[in-house]
Amino acid sequence: MRRPPKNRTSPRAIRFCRWCVCGRLDGTPALLERSTFIWDVGRLRMEFDPDAGSLNHFLLATGVDLDSARHRVDAVAADVEDAEQLGVPVGSPLLRACQITADSTSRILESADVRYVPGHILDAVADLPALVAPASAVALA
């Protein structure tokens, strides 16, 4: 009689936590955020109250080593899921901001894709000192 294999987890296996949030302004859909965190950070994300302030401040206060973040901003056409969630026609232009966040060992902690409906969002960026490069070194690619 053949036994089923034991449930073994590879020492290299990585657990993830995926997050999808539709942000609203005055009840109107304004942004759709899709984030993937490694489990150790994602489980903390589940404890975060977005009305309490900055997620980065919260993660740093809990001991997460946020060392660097790379950003890319471009425009995309709304796909079917974007259109359903944001209440816009398929193909509508959206501003997309992608971010990869890593710790001081270059281990990726988060990958995020946020899509904004034009005319509904004014975004101000205030990075933490640990994440900010000197002004002379900042360049947009």
Rank of each mutant, 00 (worst) to 15 (best):
M1V: 04
R2S: 05
R3F: 13
K6P: 00
N7I: 02
N7V: 02
T9N: 10
R12D: 10
C17F: 07
C17D: 05
L25E: 07
D26Q: 06
T28P: 01
T28N: 02
A30S: 11
A30T: 06
R34A: 07
R34C: 04
S35D: 07
S35G: 01
F37Q: 04
W39D: 10
V41N: 02
V41G: 01
R43V: 04
R43P: 00
L44R: 07
E47P: 01
F48S: 02
D49V: 05
D49S: 05
P50D: 14
A52D: 14
L55H: 13
L55K: 10
N56W: 07
H57R: 12
H57G: 09
F58P: 07
L60Q: 14
L60H: 08
A61L: 05
T62K: 14
T62N: 10
L66W: 15
D67G: 13
S68C: 11
V73E: 11
D74W: 12
A75E: 13
A77N: 10
A77P: 00
A78L: 15
V80H: 10
E81G: 05
A83R: 14
A83F: 12
E84W: 09
G87D: 06
V90N: 02
S92T: 06
A97I: 11
Q99F: 05
D103Y: 00
D103I: 03
S104T: 04
T105C: 00
S106F: 04
I108P: 04
E110I: 02
S111R: 13
A112R: 15
A112C: 15
D113L: 08
D113W: 09
D113T: 04
V114Q: 11
G119S: 11
H120P: 01
H120R: 11
H120T: 06
A126T: 11
L128A: 12
L128P: 01
P129L: 11
P129D: 10
P129V: 06
A130K: 09
A130E: 15
L131C: 07
L131F: 14
V132P: 03
V132H: 12
V132I: 11
A137D: 12
V138W: 08
V138S: 04
